[in-house]
Amino acid sequence: MKKTVFFGALTVAGLAAGVASAATLDDVKARGSLNCGVTTGLVGFAAPDANGVWEGFDVGICRAVAAAIFGDPTAVEFVPTTGQTRFTALASGEIDLLARNTTWTMSRDTDLKFDFVGVNYYDGQGFMVPKALGVTSAKDLDGATVCIQTGTTTELNLADFFRTNGISYEPVPIETNAEAQQQYLAGACDVYTTDASGLAATRATFENPGEHALLPEIISKEPLGPLVRHGDNEWGDIAMWVLNALVSAEEMGITSANIAELSAAPTNNPEINRILGTEGELGAMIGLEADWAKNAIAAGGNYGELFEQNIGEATPIGLARGLNAQWTEGGLIYSPPFR
């Protein structure tokens, strides 16, 4: 009997030791693919195309990280998450990286034990209404029925906005963007509120986008960015510097068109050389190959290219760069130097 207890205790100790997390990078490498959490479908940011291949602005981040690790942008397993499931998925280790229009807030960074690795889209919460309603300001929305994705910061902002303005509303909680779209188009809610970029992306998929208007009020700051679990700083660094590499690449003029040429031999610009791994040891410093950033940028292009291809003004979504222009052009997109 003593033996049983002893073995039992040993098992408990062994299993308990097993759950103590190993380094995420090692797990990802052993698995051979990156598990990346994305939305359940928001055109322009993350949605599968006609062939079932995920594409979009957030998907581009996932692919860049996968390319930096494996040299292969397709080594990604996309895990669709809703506003409610995303944090549990990340905290439980089901996904390694969450790139899903997630707002960087203090409580998420501290209390929920996540680390935001940067901002890939500066956004704010807006309202979309059918033009037929004749509403021109969010303050006219007294008594309106509002569709809202549950479990998001927009839910809290909405409550605050209506409370500060002393007007009432009827919230209709919705799980996914697709459901919200269906409810909104059926007229089950007067207003749909979420991040302005999400509204633009949703409106672009409507049959008659011209019949719907975005109200002028932007009621919140929504810095959207990818995030990882708190505690594994090496892994956080990789995600952070892949994002920075994409941003720096745009600043330095490294594009998917000229990257092969620039990385073939050292150029005159030492920072380009350091990013592309033709000079210095930056790759070894974050535990990756020397050409990590080259692969990341080659995966889908630099930050600006990703923006233009997926959500830029040439696409149906048609978002202007605005706050998301490079700092050199009056925007907020800024990467620390590669040195």
Partner: peptide, 24 residues
Amino acid sequence: LILIVLGLGWLATNTVTNLKALGK
């Protein structure tokens, strides 16, 4: 009985360890 107690004990330790690992 011992197996059940051990099983419950394992669940509890696992929870405590994981919460600690997550810093919660």
